[in-house]
Design a protein around this nucleic acid. Structure first.
Length: 453
RNA sequence: UGCUCGGUAGCUCAGUGGUAGAGCAGGUGGCUGUUAACCACUUGGUCGCAGGUUCAAAUCCUGCCCGAGCAGCCA
């Protein structure tokens, strides 16, 4: 008999004489002549109650059906006599596929997230992580759907790269040399290579051939960061659009964030309900707000002025020309606007070389989208498409134009205004699930000193 | 990398100088269409590691290890 998923069984419109389900037991409750199993197969948050009645062959071994065990059940789907579920499975036969003894680390009670992190191989079987990773999968799909609907080309940019694109922090070295050999000419690629910190520069190549493109893949940063919102390996979405300026870039970023939130509300309602109840009581209200209301936009200089006039006593003073501190960004999005806010036109001194210089000669066409509770979730810009200005910026950042020969070529042959951004997938997931630590929205977190699973 | 907080039973925690505790999990028995089931009894400890102070240290001091939070870097 073919397997039915728990999700489908629970959504049944009528009883069924023969149904087969397979999954893992969350808990068992025994009554006189009865045994109740909570069966979960990951297809949805809820369990299917499996009922074993004395006299049935399924009841005989009921004491072996312990928490964590894998079973294969055949029976009849019937209306439940008890409260709490409309359908339950009256078991005719059960096979114990894989037993789990009492050392099974997941108990039927609340565990701390820190403890669950230590058992990352088992935590997907918990309610919380079951929900988070279902949503991670759903939202990955929604990302492709969003871009596909807009005729964006999906580009696979390289994981191994020789270019330190942004000068963006420390990179992981990729090498086949043993420790003694230091001449990188003898290395596998004949030059120093690293794990990518961004697919942007390569995405720009495809934007100048296919117009609208995006990447969605893993990214690596060797920073020694110990925060709830940094990981050494994370996933990033980077759209890049030709014939597009900063305003078009901000429009897309805002539409994108809204699309993902709306998709979660529509397709992950049950999981979100659970997260709203057990992780963040304000979650659903906040997500609804984000979908319904327009994002705020403010220039960097206006933001600085607003912060200085706020009367708020910041630990770090707000200085024109300096980067905004986390506490400043938090004030803008959490206290002042109480909504997502896009800050744009930053001083060129605090931003990378590739961002397009504005006519004021002081700022670049950069933008950050800030959201309550997380901070920066999107960072993007219009790119410098004028070769002379790009070369000047490369030199001003103490970089060698020769190293960027192919990137510069894009400005020599059919250069067009173009723009893009990077959205941190895990940060987006944190925002949408209400989970406060980046280590808990990625299946196997890589952080300094931690690569166990 | 800097600052701060923490590490006690399988899990979640209380205990702040004087004989190591509770709830849950596990075990035994009972009860019940149960649903974080319930009731009674019960097993379970290198108090992170090493040193020091003291008649006496889970408790105070020092170093180290591990975890978390914040900051910086950024997504």
């Amino acid at each position: 008999m073919q397997r039915t998923l728990v999700k489908a069984a629970l959504a049944a419109e009528g009883p069924s004489d023969a149904l087969r389900v397979q999954g893992w037991i969350r808990t068992r409750r025994d009554a006189k002549g009865l045994s109740f199993l909570e069966l979960n197969d990951g297809s949805c948050l809820k369990n299917l109650q499996v009922l074993l009645e004395e006299g049935s062959p399924a009841y005989a071994d009921h004491e072996r059906y312990t928490t964590g065990s894998a079973i294969d059940v055949t029976g009849r789907l019937v209306a439940s006599q008890g409260k709490g579920q409309s359908w339950e499975l009256l078991a005719d036969s059960i096979e114990l596929v894989g037993a789990a003894d009492s050392s099974y680390p997941l108990q039927k009670k609340r565990h701390t997230l820190e403890y669950l992190r230590e058992i990352a191989h088992l935590r997907p079987r918990s309610n919380l992580f079951g929900a988070v990773f279902r949503m991670r999968s759903r939202l990955s799909f929604a990302i492709h759907q969003f871009f596909n609907e807009r005729s964006f080309l999906y580009v696979h940019t390289p994981i191994i790269t020789a270019s330190d694109c942004e000068g963006a922090g420390e990179m992981f070295r990729v090498t086949t040399l043993d420790g003694k050999e230091t001449d990188s000419k003898k290395d596998f690629f004949g030059k120093p290579t690293f794990l990518t910190v961004s697919g942007q520069l390569e995405a720009e190549i495809f934007a100048t051939s296919h117009s609208n493109v995006y990447t969605f893949g893993p990214t690596f940063r060797a920073e020694n960061s110990h925060t709830s919102r940094h990981a050494s390996e994370f996933w990033m979405i980077e759209p890049e659009m030709a014939f597009c300026d900063l305003e078009g870039d901000m429009d897309l970023a805002e539409a994108f964030v809204k699309h993902l939130v709306a998709d979660a509300l529509e397709h992950c309602a049950e999981d979100l309900e659970f997260l709203n109840q057990f992780v963040d009581k304000g979650l659903l209200e906040r997500l609804q707000f984000v979908v319904e209301r327009p994002f705020q936009r403010i220039t960097y200089y206006d933001a600085v002025e607003l912060l200085q006039k706020s009367g708020k006593d910041f630990q770090y003073a707000v200085e024109k020309g300096a980067n905004l501190q986390s506490e400043h960004e938090r004030y803008l999005t959490e206290e002042h606007f109480k909504s997502p806010v896009t800050v744009y036109n930053y001083p060129k001194t605090v931003k990378p070389f590739y961002m397009r210089q504005n006519d004021d000669d002081a700022t670049v066409a950069a933008m950050d989208v800030l959201v309550p509770g997380i901070g920066e979730i999107v960072g993007g810009s219009q790119r410098e498409e004028r070769l002379e200005r790009l070369d000047a910026a490369i030199r001003a950042h103490d970089l060698d134009p020769e190293d960027y020969w192919w990137y510069r070529d894009l400005r020599r042959y059919g250069s067009v205004p173009h723009a893009g951004f990077g959205l941190g997938f895990e940060r987006m997931l944190m925002f949408i699930t209400g989970v406060h630590n980046i280590r808990d929205v990625i299946p196997f977190a890589r952080t300094p000193g931690n690569a166990e699973f």
